[in-house]
Each structure stands twice: as structure tokens, then as C-alpha cells.
């Protein structure tokens, strides 16, 4: 129990650090990376909260969160790369980084 509480505390501190980076982040990619890390930390926090409250039934939901986080980050990065989300045409827009 103490170990789980200590892990939760460490996780919250990591969340604070990541949030500071996403506030301060000079470039956009710092912020994208910070949001992605924050999603991962949220997944871990949900897993730990289940054990902290003695009901680890929410682990599968944490897994679905991880999937959503991954797909969301891919969508954001794809958007930055191609400027649109539907049918990207790599032949025409490849390498045009405007952000």
C-alpha cells in the first residue's frame, strides 16, 4: 500500500513537470511531446488509482486510454505534417513543414 501511494506521488510530480514543459515549451513539438507524455502518465495514474482504492477493475479502461492517446498523437502529428487529416497526398505535400 505504501509503495502504491509513493508511486502515485511520484506520478503526480512527473505530471506537474510535464505540465510545466507544456506551458513553457518554446516550440510546438515540445508541447506535442508533453501532451503525449501526459497521456501516458494519465494511463498510469488510472491504473494506480484502481489499486489505491482497492478496486483494480479499471485496468482495461486504462488500456483503452493508451490506445486513444497513441491514435490522437498520430492524428496531431499527421495534421502538422500534411495540414489536413483526410486523404493526404504525400507526393504533393511531402516535406512542406510550415509549423
Amino acid at each position: 500500500m505504501t509503495m502504491i501511494a509513493a508511486s502515485t506521488a511520484g506520478l503526480l510530480i512527473a505530471m506537474i513537470l510535464v505540465i510545466i514543459r507544456s506551458f513553457a515549451g518554446p516550440t510546438l513539438y515540445d508541447r506535442v511531446l508533453a501532451v503525449n507524455s501526459f497521456g501516458t502518465l494519465t494511463v498510469l495514474l488510472i491504473g494506480l488509482l484502481g489499486f489505491l482504492t482497492g478496486r483494480p477493475d479499471f485496468l482495461d479502461i486504462a488500456l483503452v486510454y493508451a490506445l486513444i492517446n497513441f491514435v490522437g498523437t498520430i492524428a496531431v502529428l499527421k495534421f502538422f505534417r500534411y495540414r489536413l487529416l483526410g486523404r493526404a497526398s504525400p507526393g504533393r505535400t511531402f516535406g512542406e513543414e510550415q509549423v
Binding site: S22, R31, V99
Partner: peptide
């Protein structure tokens, strides 16, 4: 505004 969109995502996760 890009940073705001990213932070809104963080807000939702919180």
C-alpha cells in the same frame, strides 16, 4: 492557438 489546443487536450485528460 496551437499551444492552446494542446493544453485543452491536457485539460481533458486531467
Amino acid at each position: 492557438l496551437f499551444a492552446v489546443a494542446m493544453l485543452a487536450s491536457v485539460f481533458s485528460l486531467l
